[in-house]
Amino acid sequence: MKNENVIEVENLTKAFGAFKAVNAISFEVKKGEIFGFLGANGAGKTTAIKMLIGISHPSSGKAKVVDYDVYTQPEAIKRNIGYMSQRFALYDDLTVQENINFFGGIYGLSRKVIREKSKNLLVELGMHEISSKLVGSLPLGWKQKLSFSVALLHEPKIVFLDEPTGGVDPITRRQFWEMIYKAADQGTTIFVTTHYMDEAEYCDRVSIMVEGKIEALDTPKNLKQQFKVTSMNEVFLKLARNIE
């Protein structure tokens, strides 16, 4: 493979008037990597992700996602990535199967492929018996696992996960991370945000955004050494506190 980087960002900036929500950030993400994208509320994470998934136009800088340029090829990016957010994942008033069919359909998968994939997916999640239940009636943890699987349905090269485990019980949260590990093991790149600092430790590399800038980017181990602390939580607190 010629290029192992699936995301390349250089001096990416988004300004709203004089306020720079994202201020010249640069980083790369490698294929198959679990990349943690952390930051306080209002640090600019969401704005940065919106630019990377092609729904917001950068003010300046360069960014390539799956070899496509965010300025000129946002449609190609959207076809090659999966996206799951905490706020919106699946339609509560559709059944499990209908959700799978719908999201498979909008990514242009054929009926046959959807049928096969959804069968495997439901068996793997242990949800084949409840495939005709409304998603709204499922516990939150199941919903989140299901919507992660749906985000992977079209075999995207990168999956963006925006706080996928907020409010989920500790067991399901760990099962969710096992799913993430598995996807990464199969070569899918994972780009994830979270407020659980123990989850930051699960990532291969972590970046921490403070007020629009990336203030730290390394493996959790190196970051802890660099800040001379024992947990990512302390790294986070030190960084964010220093700025204030």
């Binding site: 306080a40 607190l237 506190r241």
Partner: peptide
Amino acid sequence: TTGVDPVSRK
């Protein structure tokens, strides 16, 4: 504190 970052939570 749901959905609030660790600093604000603290």
